[in-house]
Design a protein around this nucleic acid. Structure first.
Lengths: 235, 235
DNA sequence: GGCAAATGTAAGGTAGATGTAAGGTTAAGA
DNA sequence: TCTTAACCTTACATCTACCTTACATTTGCC
Protein backbone atom coordinates (compact mmCIF):
# COMPACT_ATOMS: atom_id res chain seq x y z
CA UNK A 1 0.00 0.00 0.00
CA UNK A 2 1.42 3.35 -1.02
CA UNK A 3 0.94 6.10 1.54
CA UNK A 4 2.82 8.88 -0.20
CA UNK A 5 -0.29 10.98 -0.66
CA UNK A 6 -0.45 11.38 3.12
CA UNK A 7 2.86 13.25 3.09
CA UNK A 8 1.14 16.23 1.51
CA UNK A 9 -1.40 16.63 4.26
CA UNK A 10 -1.33 19.95 6.09
CA UNK A 11 -0.24 19.50 9.71
CA UNK A 12 -0.61 22.22 12.33
CA UNK A 13 1.69 21.93 15.35
CA UNK A 14 0.87 24.01 18.41
CA UNK A 15 3.34 24.06 21.30
CA UNK A 16 4.88 26.84 23.31
CA UNK A 17 8.26 25.23 23.92
CA UNK A 18 10.48 26.27 21.00
CA UNK A 19 12.69 23.24 21.56
CA UNK A 20 9.90 20.74 21.21
CA UNK A 21 8.37 22.66 18.34
CA UNK A 22 11.60 22.50 16.38
CA UNK A 23 12.13 18.87 17.22
CA UNK A 24 8.71 17.72 16.11
CA UNK A 25 8.78 19.88 13.01
CA UNK A 26 12.11 18.45 11.93
CA UNK A 27 10.99 14.90 12.67
CA UNK A 28 8.00 15.43 10.44
CA UNK A 29 10.04 17.03 7.69
CA UNK A 30 12.61 14.26 7.80
CA UNK A 31 9.81 11.77 7.32
CA UNK A 32 8.71 13.57 4.22
CA UNK A 33 5.80 15.62 5.49
CA UNK A 34 5.98 18.75 3.40
CA UNK A 35 3.20 20.86 4.84
CA UNK A 36 3.92 21.58 8.47
CA UNK A 37 3.04 24.84 10.16
CA UNK A 38 3.81 25.76 13.77
CA UNK A 39 2.19 28.02 16.32
CA UNK A 40 3.19 28.85 19.87
CA UNK A 41 -0.09 30.01 21.34
CA UNK A 42 -3.84 29.76 20.97
CA UNK A 43 -3.92 33.09 19.24
CA UNK A 44 -1.27 32.12 16.71
CA UNK A 45 -2.95 28.76 16.19
CA UNK A 46 -6.27 30.37 15.30
CA UNK A 47 -4.66 32.76 12.87
CA UNK A 48 -2.71 29.96 11.22
CA UNK A 49 -5.72 27.64 11.03
CA UNK A 50 -7.74 30.28 9.20
CA UNK A 51 -5.46 30.40 6.19
CA UNK A 52 -3.66 27.07 6.46
CA UNK A 53 -6.77 24.89 6.87
CA UNK A 54 -4.97 22.01 8.58
CA UNK A 55 -5.84 18.39 7.94
CA UNK A 56 -4.31 17.24 11.23
CA UNK A 57 -3.52 19.18 14.42
CA UNK A 58 -0.97 18.30 17.06
CA UNK A 59 -1.81 20.29 20.17
CA UNK A 60 -0.04 20.75 23.46
CA UNK A 61 -2.49 20.84 26.35
CA UNK A 62 -0.70 23.62 28.21
CA UNK A 63 -0.48 26.85 26.27
CA UNK A 64 0.44 30.33 27.50
CA UNK A 65 -2.90 31.92 26.61
CA UNK A 66 -5.30 29.00 27.03
CA UNK A 67 -5.48 25.25 26.82
CA UNK A 68 -5.47 22.74 23.99
CA UNK A 69 -8.95 21.43 24.74
CA UNK A 70 -10.82 24.63 24.18
CA UNK A 71 -8.56 25.32 21.22
CA UNK A 72 -9.64 22.01 19.69
CA UNK A 73 -13.29 22.86 20.13
CA UNK A 74 -12.80 26.13 18.30
CA UNK A 75 -10.73 24.56 15.54
CA UNK A 76 -13.25 21.77 15.01
CA UNK A 77 -15.89 24.33 14.12
CA UNK A 78 -14.00 25.01 10.91
CA UNK A 79 -13.33 21.43 9.98
CA UNK A 80 -13.57 17.96 11.39
CA UNK A 81 -9.93 17.02 11.09
CA UNK A 82 -8.17 14.73 13.55
CA UNK A 83 -6.37 16.03 16.64
CA UNK A 84 -3.47 14.49 18.54
CA UNK A 85 -2.68 15.83 22.00
CA UNK A 86 0.67 16.11 23.69
CA UNK A 87 0.61 16.10 27.49
CA UNK A 88 3.21 16.19 30.24
CA UNK A 89 3.63 12.98 32.17
CA UNK A 90 1.32 12.27 35.05
CA UNK A 91 -1.73 14.21 33.95
CA UNK A 92 -3.98 11.21 33.45
CA UNK A 93 -7.17 13.17 33.79
CA UNK A 94 -6.10 15.43 30.97
CA UNK A 95 -5.69 12.54 28.61
CA UNK A 96 -9.18 11.32 29.23
CA UNK A 97 -10.60 14.77 28.96
CA UNK A 98 -9.06 15.07 25.52
CA UNK A 99 -10.45 11.76 24.34
CA UNK A 100 -13.84 12.57 25.78
CA UNK A 101 -13.95 15.74 23.72
CA UNK A 102 -13.23 13.86 20.55
CA UNK A 103 -9.45 13.75 20.25
CA UNK A 104 -8.03 11.03 18.08
CA UNK A 105 -4.90 10.22 20.06
CA UNK A 106 -2.61 11.56 22.71
CA UNK A 107 1.02 11.07 23.59
CA UNK A 108 2.86 11.65 26.83
CA UNK A 109 6.02 13.71 26.76
CA UNK A 110 8.76 12.71 26.35
CA UNK A 111 8.06 10.34 23.48
CA UNK A 112 9.99 8.49 20.83
CA UNK A 113 10.01 10.37 17.52
CA UNK A 114 9.30 7.14 15.71
CA UNK A 115 6.17 6.58 17.69
CA UNK A 116 4.85 10.02 16.88
CA UNK A 117 5.37 9.38 13.19
CA UNK A 118 3.61 6.04 13.38
CA UNK A 119 0.66 7.43 15.25
CA UNK A 120 0.29 10.35 12.87
CA UNK A 121 0.47 8.05 9.90
CA UNK A 122 -2.12 5.70 11.39
CA UNK A 123 -4.54 8.55 12.00
CA UNK A 124 -4.04 10.10 8.57
CA UNK A 125 -4.46 6.76 6.84
CA UNK A 126 -7.80 6.13 8.55
CA UNK A 127 -9.08 9.63 8.10
CA UNK A 128 -8.10 10.21 4.49
CA UNK A 129 -8.42 6.63 3.29
CA UNK A 130 -11.08 7.59 0.78
CA UNK A 131 -8.72 10.04 -0.90
CA UNK A 132 -6.27 7.32 -1.69
CA UNK A 133 -5.61 7.78 -5.40
CA UNK A 134 -5.38 4.00 -5.66
CA UNK A 135 -8.40 1.90 -4.82
CA UNK A 136 -8.57 -1.87 -4.85
CA UNK A 137 -11.32 -3.74 -6.61
CA UNK A 138 -11.80 -7.46 -6.78
CA UNK A 139 -9.63 -8.09 -9.83
CA UNK A 140 -7.63 -4.90 -10.17
CA UNK A 141 -6.53 -1.64 -8.68
CA UNK A 142 -7.48 1.75 -10.07
CA UNK A 143 -4.90 4.52 -10.03
CA UNK A 144 -6.86 7.71 -10.49
CA UNK A 145 -3.82 9.96 -10.67
CA UNK A 146 -2.45 8.00 -13.59
CA UNK A 147 -5.87 7.00 -14.93
CA UNK A 148 -4.86 3.37 -15.12
CA UNK A 149 -6.31 0.02 -14.20
CA UNK A 150 -3.78 -2.48 -12.88
CA UNK A 151 -4.84 -6.08 -13.31
CA UNK A 152 -3.47 -8.25 -10.56
CA UNK A 153 -3.80 -11.65 -12.21
CA UNK A 154 -1.71 -10.82 -15.25
CA UNK A 155 0.49 -7.91 -14.25
CA UNK A 156 1.35 -6.91 -17.75
CA UNK A 157 0.89 -3.37 -18.89
CA UNK A 158 -1.38 -1.06 -16.94
CA UNK A 159 -4.59 -0.48 -18.86
CA UNK A 160 -5.22 3.22 -19.54
CA UNK A 161 -8.58 4.78 -18.73
CA UNK A 162 -10.17 7.34 -20.99
CA UNK A 163 -11.50 10.65 -19.71
CA UNK A 164 -15.12 9.53 -19.52
CA UNK A 165 -14.20 6.23 -17.94
CA UNK A 166 -12.17 8.10 -15.36
CA UNK A 167 -15.00 10.50 -14.55
CA UNK A 168 -17.56 7.72 -14.22
CA UNK A 169 -15.33 5.51 -12.10
CA UNK A 170 -14.36 8.42 -9.86
CA UNK A 171 -17.98 9.24 -9.17
CA UNK A 172 -18.74 5.62 -8.41
CA UNK A 173 -15.68 5.43 -6.19
CA UNK A 174 -16.61 8.51 -4.19
CA UNK A 175 -19.85 6.74 -3.43
CA UNK A 176 -18.25 3.35 -2.97
CA UNK A 177 -20.81 0.71 -2.12
CA UNK A 178 -23.71 3.12 -2.47
CA UNK A 179 -26.01 3.20 -5.44
CA UNK A 180 -25.36 6.01 -7.91
CA UNK A 181 -28.23 6.84 -10.22
CA UNK A 182 -27.84 6.98 -13.97
CA UNK A 183 -28.74 10.66 -13.81
CA UNK A 184 -25.94 11.32 -11.33
CA UNK A 185 -23.43 9.50 -13.51
CA UNK A 186 -24.50 11.42 -16.61
CA UNK A 187 -24.21 14.61 -14.61
CA UNK A 188 -20.68 13.68 -13.58
CA UNK A 189 -19.60 12.77 -17.09
CA UNK A 190 -21.37 15.38 -19.21
CA UNK A 191 -21.90 18.21 -16.73
CA UNK A 192 -24.65 20.59 -17.72
CA UNK A 193 -27.25 19.22 -20.10
CA UNK A 194 -26.56 15.61 -19.18
CA UNK A 195 -29.62 14.37 -21.02
CA UNK A 196 -29.81 11.85 -23.79
CA UNK A 197 -26.56 10.13 -22.87
CA UNK A 198 -28.06 7.14 -21.08
CA UNK A 199 -27.14 4.79 -23.89
CA UNK A 200 -23.69 6.27 -24.19
CA UNK A 201 -23.21 5.76 -20.48
CA UNK A 202 -24.11 2.11 -20.94
CA UNK A 203 -21.42 1.72 -23.57
CA UNK A 204 -18.88 3.28 -21.22
CA UNK A 205 -19.96 0.99 -18.41
CA UNK A 206 -19.31 -1.94 -20.71
CA UNK A 207 -15.87 -0.65 -21.66
CA UNK A 208 -15.00 -0.07 -18.00
CA UNK A 209 -16.10 -3.60 -17.17
CA UNK A 210 -13.86 -4.98 -19.88
CA UNK A 211 -10.96 -3.28 -18.13
CA UNK A 212 -11.72 -4.04 -14.50
CA UNK A 213 -13.70 -7.27 -14.41
CA UNK A 214 -12.62 -10.86 -14.85
CA UNK A 215 -15.75 -11.55 -16.89
CA UNK A 216 -17.37 -8.30 -18.02
CA UNK A 217 -20.69 -10.04 -18.53
CA UNK A 218 -20.71 -11.27 -14.93
CA UNK A 219 -19.56 -8.12 -13.14
CA UNK A 220 -18.44 -8.41 -9.53
CA UNK A 221 -17.13 -4.89 -8.92
CA UNK A 222 -19.32 -2.58 -11.00
CA UNK A 223 -22.78 -3.88 -10.18
CA UNK A 224 -26.08 -3.03 -11.88
CA UNK A 225 -29.01 -2.33 -9.59
CA UNK A 226 -31.87 -2.52 -12.04
CA UNK A 227 -34.13 0.50 -11.93
CA UNK A 228 -31.91 2.37 -9.47
CA UNK A 229 -28.41 2.72 -10.89
CA UNK A 230 -24.95 1.24 -10.44
CA UNK A 231 -22.64 0.67 -7.51
CA UNK A 232 -18.96 -0.03 -7.16
CA UNK A 233 -17.78 -2.66 -4.70
CA UNK A 234 -14.36 -1.79 -3.33
CA UNK A 235 -12.29 -4.16 -1.24
CA UNK B 1 -22.85 14.39 18.46
CA UNK B 2 -24.49 11.07 19.12
CA UNK B 3 -22.12 8.11 19.03
CA UNK B 4 -24.54 5.40 20.06
CA UNK B 5 -24.35 3.67 16.71
CA UNK B 6 -20.73 2.82 17.49
CA UNK B 7 -21.90 0.60 20.33
CA UNK B 8 -23.31 -1.84 17.81
CA UNK B 9 -20.05 -2.31 15.95
CA UNK B 10 -18.77 -5.87 15.89
CA UNK B 11 -15.55 -6.18 17.90
CA UNK B 12 -13.31 -9.23 17.71
CA UNK B 13 -11.01 -9.77 20.69
CA UNK B 14 -8.12 -12.22 20.31
CA UNK B 15 -6.04 -13.07 23.36
CA UNK B 16 -4.90 -16.35 24.84
CA UNK B 17 -5.02 -15.30 28.49
CA UNK B 18 -8.53 -16.10 29.70
CA UNK B 19 -8.19 -13.56 32.48
CA UNK B 20 -7.45 -10.68 30.18
CA UNK B 21 -10.03 -11.87 27.68
CA UNK B 22 -12.75 -11.80 30.32
CA UNK B 23 -11.62 -8.47 31.65
CA UNK B 24 -11.61 -6.71 28.30
CA UNK B 25 -14.89 -8.30 27.24
CA UNK B 26 -16.61 -7.16 30.40
CA UNK B 27 -15.14 -3.68 30.12
CA UNK B 28 -16.55 -3.43 26.64
CA UNK B 29 -19.92 -4.79 27.63
CA UNK B 30 -20.14 -2.45 30.59
CA UNK B 31 -19.52 0.42 28.23
CA UNK B 32 -22.45 -0.67 26.11
CA UNK B 33 -20.71 -2.49 23.29
CA UNK B 34 -23.15 -5.23 22.41
CA UNK B 35 -21.31 -7.15 19.73
CA UNK B 36 -18.12 -8.57 21.19
CA UNK B 37 -16.68 -11.91 20.18
CA UNK B 38 -13.58 -13.54 21.66
CA UNK B 39 -11.01 -15.97 20.34
CA UNK B 40 -7.99 -17.53 22.03
CA UNK B 41 -5.85 -18.45 19.06
CA UNK B 42 -5.17 -17.61 15.44
CA UNK B 43 -7.23 -20.57 14.34
CA UNK B 44 -10.23 -19.54 16.42
CA UNK B 45 -9.86 -15.96 15.27
CA UNK B 46 -9.99 -16.91 11.62
CA UNK B 47 -13.08 -19.06 12.11
CA UNK B 48 -14.82 -16.31 14.06
CA UNK B 49 -13.88 -13.60 11.56
CA UNK B 50 -15.41 -15.60 8.70
CA UNK B 51 -18.93 -15.50 10.08
CA UNK B 52 -18.72 -12.53 12.46
CA UNK B 53 -17.21 -10.05 10.00
CA UNK B 54 -15.69 -7.79 12.67
CA UNK B 55 -15.59 -4.02 12.32
CA UNK B 56 -12.71 -3.67 14.78
CA UNK B 57 -10.15 -6.20 15.98
CA UNK B 58 -8.18 -6.16 19.23
CA UNK B 59 -5.24 -8.52 18.84
CA UNK B 60 -2.63 -9.77 21.26
CA UNK B 61 0.77 -10.02 19.63
CA UNK B 62 1.71 -13.30 21.30
CA UNK B 63 -0.64 -16.15 20.47
CA UNK B 64 -0.18 -19.88 21.03
CA UNK B 65 -0.32 -20.82 17.36
CA UNK B 66 1.11 -17.74 15.67
CA UNK B 67 1.45 -14.00 16.13
CA UNK B 68 -0.91 -11.09 15.87
CA UNK B 69 0.90 -9.45 12.98
CA UNK B 70 0.48 -12.24 10.50
CA UNK B 71 -3.08 -12.69 11.78
CA UNK B 72 -3.80 -9.06 10.97
CA UNK B 73 -2.50 -9.48 7.44
CA UNK B 74 -4.81 -12.43 6.87
CA UNK B 75 -7.80 -10.70 8.43
CA UNK B 76 -7.23 -7.56 6.38
CA UNK B 77 -7.72 -9.54 3.20
CA UNK B 78 -11.38 -9.91 4.07
CA UNK B 79 -12.01 -6.36 5.14
CA UNK B 80 -10.14 -3.18 5.89
CA UNK B 81 -11.30 -2.70 9.44
CA UNK B 82 -9.11 -1.09 12.13
CA UNK B 83 -6.84 -3.14 14.36
CA UNK B 84 -5.60 -2.34 17.87
CA UNK B 85 -2.69 -4.35 19.24
CA UNK B 86 -2.01 -5.34 22.82
CA UNK B 87 1.63 -5.94 23.69
CA UNK B 88 3.53 -6.83 26.82
CA UNK B 89 5.69 -4.09 28.23
CA UNK B 90 9.16 -3.57 26.89
CA UNK B 91 8.71 -4.90 23.39
CA UNK B 92 9.20 -1.62 21.62
CA UNK B 93 10.12 -3.17 18.34
CA UNK B 94 6.84 -5.03 18.32
CA UNK B 95 4.87 -1.85 18.61
CA UNK B 96 6.56 -0.32 15.64
CA UNK B 97 6.23 -3.47 13.62
CA UNK B 98 2.49 -3.38 14.20
CA UNK B 99 2.18 0.25 13.16
CA UNK B 100 4.37 -0.35 10.15
CA UNK B 101 2.04 -3.06 8.97
CA UNK B 102 -0.96 -0.76 9.19
CA UNK B 103 -2.26 -1.13 12.73
CA UNK B 104 -4.37 1.73 14.03
CA UNK B 105 -3.23 1.77 17.63
CA UNK B 106 -1.49 -0.29 20.23
CA UNK B 107 -1.55 -0.43 24.00
CA UNK B 108 0.97 -1.79 26.43
CA UNK B 109 -0.25 -4.22 29.07
CA UNK B 110 -1.20 -3.55 31.77
CA UNK B 111 -3.45 -0.66 30.78
CA UNK B 112 -6.27 1.34 32.27
CA UNK B 113 -9.69 0.08 31.17
CA UNK B 114 -10.81 3.63 30.62
CA UNK B 115 -7.99 4.27 28.22
CA UNK B 116 -8.87 1.22 26.17
CA UNK B 117 -12.44 2.40 25.85
CA UNK B 118 -11.36 5.88 24.81
CA UNK B 119 -8.97 4.58 22.21
CA UNK B 120 -11.51 2.18 20.78
CA UNK B 121 -14.11 4.92 20.60
CA UNK B 122 -11.67 7.30 18.91
CA UNK B 123 -10.80 4.73 16.25
CA UNK B 124 -14.40 3.74 15.61
CA UNK B 125 -15.50 7.35 15.36
CA UNK B 126 -12.87 8.12 12.72
CA UNK B 127 -13.42 4.93 10.79
CA UNK B 128 -17.19 4.86 10.73
CA UNK B 129 -17.96 8.57 10.86
CA UNK B 130 -20.00 8.71 7.68
CA UNK B 131 -22.25 5.81 8.23
CA UNK B 132 -25.15 5.22 5.90
CA UNK B 133 -28.51 6.07 7.36
CA UNK B 134 -30.12 2.73 8.14
CA UNK B 135 -33.44 2.00 9.76
CA UNK B 136 -33.75 -0.89 12.16
CA UNK B 137 -36.65 -3.28 11.96
CA UNK B 138 -37.31 -6.21 14.22
CA UNK B 139 -35.27 -8.76 12.28
CA UNK B 140 -33.13 -6.67 10.00
CA UNK B 141 -31.82 -3.28 9.05
CA UNK B 142 -32.60 -1.50 5.80
CA UNK B 143 -29.90 0.47 4.04
CA UNK B 144 -31.66 2.60 1.47
CA UNK B 145 -28.47 4.02 -0.04
CA UNK B 146 -27.35 0.54 -0.91
CA UNK B 147 -30.86 -0.87 -1.39
CA UNK B 148 -30.09 -3.79 0.90
CA UNK B 149 -31.68 -5.61 3.79
CA UNK B 150 -29.22 -6.81 6.41
CA UNK B 151 -30.47 -9.77 8.40
CA UNK B 152 -29.06 -9.76 11.89
CA UNK B 153 -29.74 -13.35 12.92
CA UNK B 154 -27.74 -14.94 10.13
CA UNK B 155 -25.17 -12.38 9.04
CA UNK B 156 -24.68 -13.78 5.58
CA UNK B 157 -24.82 -11.67 2.48
CA UNK B 158 -26.94 -8.54 2.46
CA UNK B 159 -30.18 -9.14 0.56
CA UNK B 160 -30.63 -6.78 -2.39
CA UNK B 161 -33.87 -4.85 -2.82
CA UNK B 162 -35.38 -4.25 -6.24
CA UNK B 163 -36.47 -0.82 -7.45
CA UNK B 164 -40.15 -1.28 -6.59
CA UNK B 165 -39.36 -2.84 -3.24
CA UNK B 166 -37.09 0.10 -2.50
CA UNK B 167 -39.75 2.64 -3.43
CA UNK B 168 -42.46 0.94 -1.39
CA UNK B 169 -40.28 0.47 1.67
CA UNK B 170 -39.04 4.04 1.47
CA UNK B 171 -42.59 5.37 1.47
CA UNK B 172 -43.53 3.18 4.39
CA UNK B 173 -40.40 4.25 6.21
CA UNK B 174 -41.08 7.95 5.71
CA UNK B 175 -44.38 7.33 7.44
CA UNK B 176 -42.93 4.95 10.01
CA UNK B 177 -45.56 3.70 12.43
CA UNK B 178 -48.39 5.44 10.59
CA UNK B 179 -50.80 3.73 8.26
CA UNK B 180 -50.09 4.26 4.56
CA UNK B 181 -53.00 3.64 2.24
CA UNK B 182 -52.76 1.31 -0.72
CA UNK B 183 -53.44 4.27 -2.98
CA UNK B 184 -50.52 6.17 -1.52
CA UNK B 185 -48.20 3.21 -2.00
CA UNK B 186 -49.29 2.74 -5.60
CA UNK B 187 -48.75 6.45 -6.15
CA UNK B 188 -45.22 6.13 -4.75
CA UNK B 189 -44.33 3.11 -6.83
CA UNK B 190 -46.06 3.84 -10.14
CA UNK B 191 -46.31 7.63 -10.11
CA UNK B 192 -48.86 8.94 -12.52
CA UNK B 193 -51.72 6.59 -13.34
CA UNK B 194 -51.21 4.42 -10.30
CA UNK B 195 -54.42 2.51 -10.87
CA UNK B 196 -54.92 -1.20 -11.34
CA UNK B 197 -51.74 -2.17 -9.54
CA UNK B 198 -53.33 -3.18 -6.24
CA UNK B 199 -52.65 -6.84 -6.85
CA UNK B 200 -49.15 -6.15 -8.04
CA UNK B 201 -48.53 -4.17 -4.87
CA UNK B 202 -49.63 -7.19 -2.88
CA UNK B 203 -47.09 -9.37 -4.63
CA UNK B 204 -44.37 -6.82 -3.84
CA UNK B 205 -45.44 -6.68 -0.20
CA UNK B 206 -45.06 -10.44 -0.06
CA UNK B 207 -41.58 -10.28 -1.61
CA UNK B 208 -40.53 -7.56 0.81
CA UNK B 209 -41.77 -9.63 3.73
CA UNK B 210 -39.73 -12.58 2.55
CA UNK B 211 -36.67 -10.37 2.81
CA UNK B 212 -37.30 -8.56 6.06
CA UNK B 213 -39.48 -10.82 8.22
CA UNK B 214 -38.62 -13.92 10.21
CA UNK B 215 -41.85 -15.55 9.05
CA UNK B 216 -43.32 -13.68 6.08
CA UNK B 217 -46.78 -15.11 6.75
CA UNK B 218 -46.72 -13.73 10.32
CA UNK B 219 -45.34 -10.26 9.68
CA UNK B 220 -44.07 -8.25 12.62
CA UNK B 221 -42.54 -5.26 10.83
CA UNK B 222 -44.68 -4.67 7.74
CA UNK B 223 -48.18 -4.91 9.19
CA UNK B 224 -51.48 -5.14 7.33
CA UNK B 225 -54.25 -2.92 8.61
CA UNK B 226 -57.24 -4.44 6.93
CA UNK B 227 -59.35 -1.98 4.99
CA UNK B 228 -56.90 0.88 5.58
CA UNK B 229 -53.44 -0.01 4.31
CA UNK B 230 -50.06 -1.03 5.68
CA UNK B 231 -47.68 0.29 8.28
CA UNK B 232 -44.02 -0.26 9.04
CA UNK B 233 -42.90 -0.78 12.63
CA UNK B 234 -39.39 0.55 13.19
CA UNK B 235 -37.39 -0.04 16.34
C1' DG C 1 -5.40 17.85 -43.10
C1' DG C 2 -4.85 13.16 -41.74
C1' DC C 3 -4.83 9.77 -38.45
C1' DA C 4 -5.90 7.21 -34.30
C1' DA C 5 -8.28 7.04 -30.30
C1' DA C 6 -12.25 8.26 -27.85
C1' DT C 7 -16.93 8.80 -27.80
C1' DG C 8 -21.69 8.42 -29.45
C1' DT C 9 -25.52 5.77 -31.72
C1' DA C 10 -28.45 2.18 -33.01
C1' DA C 11 -30.57 -2.29 -33.09
C1' DG C 12 -31.29 -6.83 -31.66
C1' DG C 13 -30.96 -9.76 -27.55
C1' DT C 14 -31.77 -11.22 -22.70
C1' DA C 15 -32.28 -11.96 -17.74
C1' DG C 16 -34.45 -10.72 -13.95
C1' DA C 17 -37.91 -7.60 -12.15
C1' DT C 18 -42.55 -6.96 -12.42
C1' DG C 19 -47.41 -8.06 -13.49
C1' DT C 20 -51.26 -11.39 -13.48
C1' DA C 21 -54.40 -14.72 -12.25
C1' DA C 22 -56.45 -18.29 -9.63
C1' DG C 23 -57.24 -20.57 -5.57
C1' DG C 24 -56.60 -20.22 -0.54
C1' DT C 25 -56.94 -17.93 4.01
C1' DT C 26 -58.24 -14.69 7.47
C1' DA C 27 -60.91 -11.68 10.31
C1' DA C 28 -64.75 -8.40 10.85
C1' DG C 29 -69.51 -8.13 11.12
C1' DA C 30 -74.11 -10.04 11.27
C1' DT D 1 -71.53 -19.60 13.62
C1' DC D 2 -71.72 -18.18 9.05
C1' DT D 3 -70.67 -14.97 5.36
C1' DT D 4 -67.98 -12.29 2.69
C1' DA D 5 -64.78 -8.99 1.30
C1' DA D 6 -60.14 -8.09 1.85
C1' DC D 7 -55.99 -9.92 1.64
C1' DC D 8 -52.49 -13.84 1.02
C1' DT D 9 -49.76 -16.97 -1.72
C1' DT D 10 -47.93 -19.22 -5.60
C1' DA D 11 -46.66 -20.13 -10.16
C1' DC D 12 -46.08 -18.41 -14.31
C1' DA D 13 -46.29 -14.96 -18.22
C1' DT D 14 -44.62 -10.71 -19.70
C1' DC D 15 -41.97 -6.88 -20.52
C1' DT D 16 -38.81 -3.33 -19.30
C1' DA D 17 -34.39 -1.89 -18.32
C1' DC D 18 -30.24 -3.03 -19.38
C1' DC D 19 -26.68 -5.67 -22.24
C1' DT D 20 -23.91 -6.29 -26.24
C1' DT D 21 -21.97 -5.48 -30.55
C1' DA D 22 -20.82 -3.21 -34.58
C1' DC D 23 -20.42 0.82 -36.63
C1' DA D 24 -20.63 6.02 -37.16
C1' DT D 25 -18.95 10.25 -35.65
C1' DT D 26 -16.20 13.34 -33.13
C1' DT D 27 -12.07 14.82 -30.88
C1' DG D 28 -7.43 15.85 -30.31
C1' DC D 29 -2.81 15.38 -31.71
C1' DC D 30 0.97 15.28 -35.21
Amino acid sequence: MNLDYLKNKRILLVDDEPGLQDMVASILQNEGFTQVRTAGSVREALTAAGTFRPELAILDVMLPDGDGFSLMEVLRKDGDYPVLFLTARGEEEDKFKGFGLGADDYMVKPFLPKELIFRITAILRRTYKSEDPVVSLKYCKIDFERAEALREADPKEPIPLTAKEHAILLTLCRNAGRIVTIDALCEAAWGDNPYGYENSLMAHIRRIREKIEENPSKPESLITVKGLGYKLIVQ
